[in-house]
Design a protein around this nucleic acid. Structure first.
Lengths: 164, 164
DNA sequence: TGCATCTAACAACTCAGTTGCATCTGGCGC
DNA sequence: GCGCCAGATGCAACTGAGTTGTTAGATGCA
């Protein structure tokens, strides 16, 4: 579903250009990228700033859409930047029920652990996926004999705090 | 990445026509299908027998491959039959990390509950997914305020009892 | 500034899953 | 046992997410 039309609200002052939320996160994104040993490029900054501005996981399409107006980026580049963000430990990816990868910024406090072990919540109403960092996943599950788990992935489905 | 699973054991007697394991589950499959109000067809019997013969979740590709010799079935039909099995409550589907749906027979004892709530274990060595019916998923998780979960999905990754 | 290296953009591709439609068949009524 | 027909199958074409290869362009260091 694509809302291509200009989202300008009727009550906006005519001249003031509406700034998407991610623009204010650009300095933060630049700082984070500089902390890696890799290059600081426009697409990386824009994609990271976009993720930083969201409280839920975003697909490559969501990111490309959000950046389309001010930072139009080739979709392959979005894929590669998102993959790079996962690689350097800034973000992580979540497999959705719709066969689409979604990406979300890692909690900085947990950034030391390469294998994040937090839970996800997917809203069945608005279809958005949230990270629940507070939910402990290191519970003492009793697995059948012989199974040696290395990672646990906990996924909830229901209604999020916006749709409840 | 697909681990082309080699099913044929090397120690099989040379001459005796090797019967795939699913053939012996055909009567069981027929009985289960008859219990539904729907039609008993060759593809349905074959696909269900195939799933019944496995202790792990199978993708549509795995099923089509397993049936290729004795019951060659169009891949679209495999998709439709698997979907039908989920619909009538005989099987359930699992979203894998590789964007592939995998299917597995429901535990008959839990078949009353339409929303299965058991855990899955994906082996990082052999790439197979197992159901862990013994693991309770109704644990008292503390979710952040406002999130109302309806389903819980618990997924482990590690080494299965065959690869440990 | 110049240059080597890394990154972005474009096009073309792969692959899982879906849709449309003509044909076939299981199961019921006769 | 025969014929009918709703529903299932098979085939082809399509969709959409994600990947790969290649060339042009941007980045950062000397």
């Amino acid at each position: 579903m694509k809302t291509t039309t200009r989202p300008a609200g009727p009550n906006q002052p005519a001249k003031a250009a509406i700034q998407p939320a991610y623009l204010s996160r650009i300095p933060e994104a630049e700082a984070a990228i500089r902390r890696t040993a890799d290059r600081l490029t426009q697409p990386r900054v824009a994609v990271l700033a976009c993720l930083l501005s969201l409280d839920h996981a975003a697909s490559h399409f969501d990111v490309a859409q959000a950046l389309a107006k001010h930072h139009p980026i080739d979709r392959v580049t979005v894929y590669r930047v998102l993959e790079w963000l996962v690689e350097v430990g800034i973000a992580h990816r979540i497999a959705g029920d719709d066969r689409v990868w979604r990406f979300m910024i890692n909690d900085p406090s947990a950034a030391i652990a390469p294998h994040h072990q937090h839970a996800h919540f997917t809203c069945t109403t608005c279809q958005q996926t949230f990270c629940l960092d507070d939910v402990p996943t290191k519970l003492n599950f009793k697995l059948p004999a012989g199974f040696k788990p290395a990672e646990v992935d906990l996924k909830f489905r229901g209604r999020c705090l916006h749709c409840a």
